[in-house]
């Protein structure tokens, strides 16, 4: 197992190297001069720095070197753990990210926890409530969740719960109350998706022979669902939650901007706008790293949830768990 983990980590490094290299190339190909942006004189705005000042700064940042040399310099620095200084603020990028990260982690944990709890509640009610009408009502509500983009939820939640009712602050990252609305905005969409997958899984599981066996033993439907079906149905949910962790940053960019949270998502948006190369690269390494680690963790934990799944480090496969394996084994 150790060898497997090591191999995966080496692969992760290769993935990160690829991501960093591609983003380096993309930044070179997209228009934009970081030095001019940095000096505030974007394009036509007069009163920018003089050509000598621009040249001096360009040299200071090493941006006057040939591309291959900039690229190698960058790789060399990364290998020695030096991610450089952000162009826009002049602060070390590690400090910038360290400052923003807790804000996003708080939001991400809150959003994912909310999604999972909400998905569980809706999916369970969707199969357990008495009466097909009620059940299908709960199932259709989850479609609404999928249909509402997070920026829209954010704006509606702001209007209602903050501006009108004054229950929650509209902005900031000060304390638990401040995370409620942004977490809600992010969670609605993912909760909807999760609930749908889970409901589908539960319904499938309930038609399986083992469910009939359980019922034949005289177990109540609640116990069949909670004791047997849920565990089977939660496998794809588990994979999806793993993907969500990796995807938190994307969702956070929008939500953090709307709610004025100084998190990693907003930092990313600012960095791209300013062509702040060191910051962008560090953020790509961070998000890529998180994604790789989460996928690895999911793969390693999978067999613990469903013993029928062969642990990837035993089968020799390196990819994620193949969901079709479940039905074959069953």
């Amino acid at each position: 197992m150790l060898r497997y983990v090591l191999r995966r980590l080496v692969q992760a490094l290769i993935v990160l190297w690829g991501a960093v290299t591609v983003s380096f190339a993309v930044l070179q190909l997209t228009p934009g001069d970081p030095v001019r942006i940095m000096l505030g004189g974007a394009g036509d705005a007069a009163a920018a720095a003089s050509p000598e000042q621009v040249a001096a700064l360009r040299a200071e940042l090493g941006l006057d070197l040939p591309l291959w040399q900039q690229y190698l310099d960058f790789l060399g620095r990364v290998l020695t753990g030096d991610l450089g200084t952000a162009y826009s603020t002049g602060q070390p990028v590690t400090a910038e990210i360290a400052q923003a990260l807790p804000v996003t982690v708080e939001l991400g944990v809150a959003a994912i926890a909310t999604s999972v709890v909400a998905a569980l509640v809706f999916a369970l009610l969707g199969v357990l409530l008495p009466g097909a009408g009620l059940r299908s009502l709960f199932q259709s509500v989850t479609v609404l969740g999928v249909a509402m983009p997070s920026f829209w939820v954010a704006i509606v939640a702001l209007q209602l719960f903050s501006f009108r009712l004054g229950w929650f602050p509209a902005f900031g990252s000060d304390g638990v109350v401040a995370v409620v609305l942004p977490a809600l905005a992010m969670a609605v969409l993912t909760a909807g998706t999760l609930a749908q997958v889970l409901t589908r899984g539960l319904k499938d599981a309930l038609t399986e022979p083992y469910a009939d066996t359980a019922r034949a033993k005289g177990l109540s439907e609640v116990r069949v669902v909670l004791g047997h079906a849920l565990r089977n149905a939660s496998l794809p949910v588990f994979t999806m939650v793993g993907m969500m962790v990796g995807g938190v940053l994307g969702g956070a960019a929008i939500v953090e901007t709307i709610f004025g949270r100084q998190g990693v998502g907003q930092l990313f948006v600012e960095a791209v706008r300013a062509h702040d190369f060191p910051l962008i690269q560090a953020l790509i390494i961070l998000t890529g790293g998180v994604f790789v680690l989460v996928t690895l963790a999911v793969d390693l934990l999978y067999p613990l949830i469903d013993p029928r799944v062969v642990a990837p480090y035993r089968s020799g496969r390196t990819g994620g768990v193949d969901l079709t394996a479940r039905t074959e084994v069953a």
Binding site: G32, D33, P34, R36, I37, G41, G43, R273
Partner: peptide, 8 residues
């Protein structure tokens, strides 16, 4: 144009 494009 974007800020970035205009810096060109």
């Amino acid at each position: 144009v974007t800020d970035a494009e205009s810096s060109e």
